[in-house]
Design a protein around this nucleic acid. Structure first.
Lengths: 122, 122
DNA sequence: TCCATATTTCCATTATTCTCGAAATATGAG
DNA sequence: CTCATATTTCGAGAATAATGGAAATATGGA
């Protein structure tokens, strides 16, 4: 991950509304949530939501797909994993055995994408 | 962790200069780095650095202590761990066994603080 | 006390981001 | 084709943040 990507992701998440959107999508899992449902769940104006989803998408944190009239957004676990890894990269240089187990987990978070299909079996 | 703390941390890190500072401190480990050394390493004006360190400190991401004429800054691994945990909280609701190993790692990242004493035994 | 080093505070300018109303686009149903 | 739903785009004003020069504060040494 490049520094610039990380900055984009972090500043995208550094906003109360967008962080709430992202956490809702993380919680929802890879099946995603329609934009309208996000707007209702968080009680925000549709145009604000759209702008914020667009910022998250441009930062690479969420992906979208159209489904009928709705557009479904989902968290990108791979990007998330990359960001967390970037933040802790070379953590405690000289004592990597303490911080590097991160890698194992990040791989699993990444795998979370295709792997975890919650409640509704779709 | 409250949402507001997380937003503060994320927006603090959502800035190229501050992210570079933070990563340098993460890499340096709990022993920390003097403000002047950070400024030299990253080639930034001392007043900019001071402002940015202040933002990081206010967000809870770094701590400082005076040592002679210098002020030593270090990354706060506990805060970092809290932030990462907050971001992935309830990840993939319904399939927590996939994402929750994060917790184990976050505990270790947190422990990184007192535990890892790199190269110079101080 | 006087000086050099280290860091912070103050200030003004510039640049960016946020917010929200209104209009536009896209899809599917009748 | 017309209509209702879902989402995005456009635009302007308000708010917030970034930048860098200059001065102020703090510490330690001679």
């Amino acid at each position: 991950m490049e520094s610039k990507s990380a900055v984009n992701m972090l500043s995208a998440l550094g906003h109360e509304g967008r962080l709430a959107i992202f956490r809702l999508l993380v919680k929802a899992g890879p099946q995603g949530v329609a934009a309208g449902d996000v707007a209702r769940a968080l009680d925000v104006l549709p145009n604000s939501l759209s702008a914020n989803l667009s910022i998250l998408a441009h930062a690479g944190l969420v992906t979208s797909r159209r489904e009928g009239r709705s557009i479904i957004y989902s968290a990108d676990y791979g990007a998330m994993s990359g960001l967390l890894g970037f933040l802790m990269e070379d953590c405690c240089d000289g004592a990597p055995e303490i911080c590097s187990p991160l890698n194992a987990v990040l791989a699993r978070v990444e795998a979370c994408g295709p792997a975890c299909a919650p409640k509704s079996p779709a």
